[in-house]
């Protein structure tokens, strides 16, 4: 596989990988680093890339695993994951979070367990089918559905709580 061909296969989902990485790692810089790392790994394994039916699903699984590894090593070295990019966020993000309700959704999403977080991201943001998600996170459709329902309800309950509190 030539570099141009590789870039053409992988580049279309660069932003998607970035969003997933950012959901895990929070920081923009770290998410960009993660995407770069995943691309390098894919480039090195470009021969095996052809074996996978969907390069995208493979890339997403890789991103997920890479981010979890990063989080684990951070925990091991006792570093706290902080929103280090609050000051220099790009405009779009600032616009998103200007909306208090939306900001709250992301805050609640951050507090979800890793599995629920990634499922919610893959379904409600990236809009994948259950079967695809199940393959990406090495699970089955029923489990994905259950985790997704739990995640959505958790976000809803937290939001309703906050909403009612705000009204009072």
């Amino acid at each position: 596989m030539k570099q141009a061909e590789f870039v053409n296969t992988i580049l279309p989902f660069k932003d998607r990988l970035y969003r997933i990485a950012k959901r895990y790692l929070v920081s923009t810089d770290e998410a960009n680093d993660a995407v770069q790392e995943v691309f390098l790994k894919l480039w090195k394994n470009k021969k095996s890339l052809k074996k996978y039916r969907s390069a995208e699903a493979f890339a997403i699984t890789m991103t997920k695993n890479y981010c979890l590894d990063r989080l684990k090593s951070k925990q091991a070295s006792n570093l706290k994951i902080v929103h280090s990019n609050y000051q220099n966020r790009d405009n779009l993000e600032a616009k998103i979070e200007a909306d208090d309700g939306v900001a709250l959704v992301f805050k609640i999403m951050d507090s979800l367990p890793e599995q629920q977080k990634i499922i919610l991201q893959l379904r409600d943001v990236e809009q994948f089918e259950f079967a695809e998600i199940a393959k990406m996170i090495d699970s089955n459709e029923t489990a994905v559905r259950v985790a997704l329902s739990r995640a959505r309800k958790k976000v809803r309950d937290q939001m309703v709580k906050q909403y009612n509190y705000g009204i009072q």
């Binding site: 990988l17 969003r19 680093d33 779009l92 909306d99 709250l104 943001v125 809009q127 309703v160």
Partner: peptide, 27 residues
Amino acid sequence: VQFAPLFNGMSQAAQEVSSGMIVLPNE
């Protein structure tokens, strides 16, 4: 209306794009 932020947030999150450049080693 209380559910609006949930759905709007998700669609907005889907528009976020990476600003980083991808550097691949020369072949």
